[in-house]
Simulated scan of single mutants.
Amino acid sequence: MSEEKQRRPVLRWAALSVLSAISSAALFGLLGLWLLLRPDGPLPDHWNPTKRLTVAAPVTIVTRFQMMRALGDVAECRAVLDQAGVAFAPMNDLEVDENCGIAGRGQLSKLANSRLNRVETRCATVLRLAMWEHHVVQPAAQDLLGTSVSSITQIGSYNCRKMRTSRGSDGRWSSHAKANAIDITGMRLADGRRLSLLKDWDGDDPEAAFLRKIWRGSCDWFRLVLGPDYNQLHADHFHLENTGWGFCR
């Protein structure tokens, strides 16, 4: 018998052994994944992509996936906000025309840790705002100002109008026309201080540093952010928007 013929059974046996080992590893991997992702499994919720987003949970690589799922499902979005203690009273959807209206409509008056002057908006906008408030605004206030934020001042979310630019009205419809944005003008701190973008944005003091830090941090949670450095139209507020392509200025 030739040496080549003698090697064939050995090679066949080696190939079958490798395939068997790969199949066993894949089977055990799937079994382990199933055990981890079970509702009663050992994996913490903020690491489990099958579990609901929790606003107060630590941010992990899974958080974005959980958030996008909630943003795409109004019922899931409302459940996340309820769990976080956000006061977002449900309202019937507003249907005006193809350009204006609010899906997932409600009235927001309180985030997890701070109040707002009441505003009518959509659930997706509130969810992004809640994540920003918990993971950016409150930690920055403690780090830079030694206190917490007790209330956030806004000047509107829904407004059925065209986009405004420094050259006048734009032919395109504003993101406000579907409540996909909210404008924030300032904060009130737990120690009584009041901050506004118009008077506190510029400078080297802690208040200015705080406002700039939460502006930068808002870019992690909203898809388009415009602030006082963008143009004169935004000198007094942050424009925080759900839609867009990651523009932050």
Rank of each mutant, 00 (worst) to 15 (best):
G217W: 01
M68Y: 12
S109C: 04
R216I: 03
A26Q: 11
T54L: 13
N159M: 07
S109F: 03
I182S: 02
P206I: 11
A14E: 14
L37I: 09
L71F: 06
N92K: 13
A235D: 11
A208H: 05
D229S: 12
T60V: 11
A181C: 07
M131H: 05
F247K: 10
D236M: 03
K51E: 15
W47P: 05
W173D: 08
L144G: 11
V126W: 03
L189I: 08
R8F: 12
V18S: 08
S148P: 01
T153S: 12
E207F: 01
R7W: 15
F210I: 07
R7C: 12
L27W: 15
R38F: 08
D202P: 00
M67R: 09
T60N: 02
P228T: 05
I182L: 08
T50G: 13
L30F: 15
D200A: 07
F28G: 11
D204C: 00
S2K: 00
D202F: 08
L16C: 13
V59Q: 14
L37S: 10
L211V: 07
P139V: 01
A84P: 02
Q66I: 08
G186W: 00
N92M: 14
L94P: 03
S151R: 13
L71G: 00
L195I: 10
Q66K: 12
V225Q: 06
A21S: 12
A179F: 04
S196L: 01
F238E: 03
N242H: 03
G217P: 04
W245I: 10
N242F: 04
R249V: 01
A21D: 09
T60Q: 10
G244I: 06
L116A: 02
T243D: 10
W34K: 14
S157W: 06
T50W: 09
L16Q: 13
L198P: 02
V59K: 10
C123W: 01
D97V: 00
G192E: 10
L111Q: 00
R164F: 09
L19W: 14
K162W: 04
W245K: 14
V149A: 08
V119R: 06
V62N: 04
R223Y: 05
G192W: 06
A141V: 01
E95C: 02
S157K: 05
T153C: 00
S175G: 06
L195D: 04
C248F: 12
D220V: 03
D205F: 09
K162P: 05
G85Q: 09
H134C: 02
T54A: 14
E241L: 03
A177W: 01
R64W: 11
I182E: 00
H239M: 06
M187S: 07
S175K: 01
G72N: 15
V149M: 07
R223F: 05
R69H: 14
P90R: 01
Q6R: 15
L30S: 15
D170Q: 07
Y230L: 00
G85Y: 08
D229Q: 11
C160H: 05
R167I: 00
N48H: 13
V55Q: 04
G72H: 09
R128D: 04
S150C: 09
R105F: 06
G246S: 11
H239Y: 04
R193H: 12
L53P: 08
C77N: 09
E76V: 11
G85A: 08
I102L: 07
W221T: 01
D220S: 14
L31T: 13
M67E: 11
A15Q: 15
V149E: 02
